[in-house]
Design a protein around this nucleic acid. Structure first.
Lengths: 226, 226
DNA sequence: GTATTATTAGAGTATATACTCTAGTGAGTC
DNA sequence: GACTCACTAGAGTATATACTCTAATAATAC
């Protein structure tokens, strides 16, 4: 693998594990056993690395959130979207953690992320529309649909942050993809009142699969993870 | 005013304005025109300052979220809770921005914040219960109510982060309390399907007051603020 | 007044951080 | 063999950051 790609990969790994704030360019170089100079040959600065990683993330989500317009939407589609989005969130989880700082230090990223958000919101809204066309949820007026989409976006993008703060032990290490996907339970909670009688039972059963196992917040957080 | 209190006040101000990450203890001291040594006489370290500020924040929210158990809940009560919570969020807005990092660097804060979250979630759930008792929303089973409360919490605590990332110009400066309170519109969106016919119109009218004025996300962000 | 304590200034320190500079190395090309 | 050029090592730098230390001053108690 090329050094440039190795740098991106290691950076992502370290960022996810420790948080962008706690990972320096020197750490990244050391982790790869290359020199800082080498790293700076491939990237102008730390922001550049982060921006490249964002582009990957963006590509991934755009790929998953491509809505097929030639056929009706199914429950399986919806499940797929939810699973994919949370997978993506997991793989690039450092990103939302330090989002504000990252956007403040890179205008290019700020602009791109804004566009990205708008695309995601449009996709979510389109999904709701198609779910209504398929008779899975009741159709809603555009106003309500976009407000709902925004709420879905807020829940999705901040579920992980919530989990980390709810944990008693140190945030970064303890967190599983399974726990993360309990966010799907929360998203489906938003849909409940809009489900059609024909689909209500099926969606509720789907939701049940993602239900948090225990009283999460109450755990004493022994911290035996990793 | 005592130096100690001045330090807390200035710190909060600077943190809110520039983000905790961008404010050093030296900045705080300089801003107050006192020496770093003086600052460290009053606080062991930066975390200590943050922790004290958190305690203030906690006290404020706990005060506002005290639910009177001797009488029924009114719509005005609900409005008051929403307004107060967003006011608090505004006054201590640096806090949620760097939350994960802050919790990672102070175990005491982590534990206290976890308890704080649980209290807030309980309060939100209790508010829903009392709104149902008052005939404003339909009563729901506990499971659903707590999942809904969690969604409300997610929307409330992350609305500002969303606004900042949606803005085109630099995040910190441009943001008004008015914009922030459009979060209330989003929270009320969550309640819509559960409203009783008797109150539907009134709540919808209330919600309308907080509706975002323009197509927020679409603005070009000239950045003329501050 | 004197002793004690609380408060403050300000220089200083150890460490970290992002990044630069110079001097290469090695694989391919002609 | 000379030349190019992408790539790499590693020492080095300017600056920042959290925090410490000492000495001095102001406030208070007796």
């Amino acid at each position: 693998m090329k050094t440039r790609d190795k740098i991106l990969l290691s950076s992502l790994e370290l960022f996810n594990e420790r948080g962008e704030r706690n990972v320096t360019t020197n750490h990244i170089a050391a982790h790869l056993a290359i020199s800082p100079g080498n790293l700076y040959y491939h990237f102008r600065n730390k922001s550049d690395i982060i921006y490249e990683i964002f582009l990957e993330y963006e590509k991934l989500v755009d790929f998953y959130l491509d809505i097929p317009e030639d056929r009706a939407m199914t429950l399986d589609d919806m499940t797929f979207y939810l699973e994919s989005v949370f997978d993506g969130l997991w793989s690039y989880r450092f990103f939302h953690r330090d989002l504000e700082y990252l956007l403040d230090s890179d205008q290019r990223l700020r602009q791109d992320y804004r566009d990205f958000t708008n695309r995601c919101l449009a996709s979510i809204s389109r999904i709701f529309e198609k779910l209504a066309e398929a008779g899975i949820i009741e159709p809603q007026e555009e106003d309500l649909r976009s407000a709902m989409s925004l709420n879905v976006w807020l829940v999705i993008t901040n579920w992980m942050a919530f989990l980390k703060t709810a944990h008693a032990a140190e945030a970064s290490a303890c967190l599983t993809l399974t726990e993360l996907k309990q966010g799907i339970y929360q998203v489906l909670t938003l849909e409940i009142p809009y489900l059609t009688p024909a689909y209500r039972e099926r969606v509720m059963a789907l939701r049940e699969k993602y239900r948090p196992s225990l009283h999460e917040l109450g755990d004493t957080g022994t911290g035996v993870c990793k």
